[in-house]
Amino acid sequence: MPTWQLRLLRGRPGSSPRLETYPVELPAEAYLIDAVEKIWAEQDRSLLFRHACHHASCGACGVRVNGRERLMCITPLREFSPDRPIRVEPLRHFPWLGDLLVDVSPMMRRMAEVGFAIIRRDELTADRPLPEGIEQGTRFEDCIECGLCLSACPVMAADEDYLGPATLAAIERMRSEPRDRDAARLLALADDPHGAWRCHSAMECTAVCPSNVDPASAIGRLRRWLIAEKLRRWFGGGR
């Protein structure tokens, strides 16, 4: 069984963090979350990290692996070589609580402001007969609110008031299927220097998204819609 070298960022707020190396013996079929959990279980019980579902559904285990945003639970160890250390650091642009743990509540509060329900119409059932008693197939939204896109966004690095890719994508989702939400208020939120117009199209959000959300395209669609709205107001506004 190979031994992997994990370099984890360790420390608590108030002291300067450092990278520490931990050898972990695991088969190549295992995942990074297994390695970190094993370090916690067998080597250092003080290690702080977030995790829950281990299958990319909860969005809790986002970290930076060799600098890049990943979910630990779907990052297989076979991607790496046992000879080279795997560097694991907490996400950026969130308040740091210690080790690999960050406080995601600022993002969650912003998502709560959008308030789109996590349930959507199931596109798979749109053209199919549904079982009796079910009027409409439902499924969860793709976004798992893991915060990887926020950590990867270079605008987020600078502008703490930027709504951020996840929230903008949520607003775009809501716009395309408003259900009972107050669309006007949310679109006003997006139509702001710190909203959809702040994006510099670095495309990193879509590049790191583990859940098919594609925030960059969503921001683009949102902008197209906002521009069309403006044109409508300027030229055909009479109606």
């Binding site: 930076r64 060799n66 600098g67 890049r68 945003e69 990867a152 270079p154 605008v155 987020m156 690095a157 600078a158 502008d159 703490e160 510099h200 199209s201 670095a202 495309m203 990193e204 590049a207």
Partner: peptide
């Protein structure tokens, strides 16, 4: 650090490089 955050290319790919 926030002012120079966009210069930090660690972990970034084409899109980040293009922006920088």
């Amino acid at each position: 650090k926030r002012a120079t955050g966009w210069v930090d290319l660690r972990g970034r790919r084409e899109g980040g490089l293009a922006f920088l």
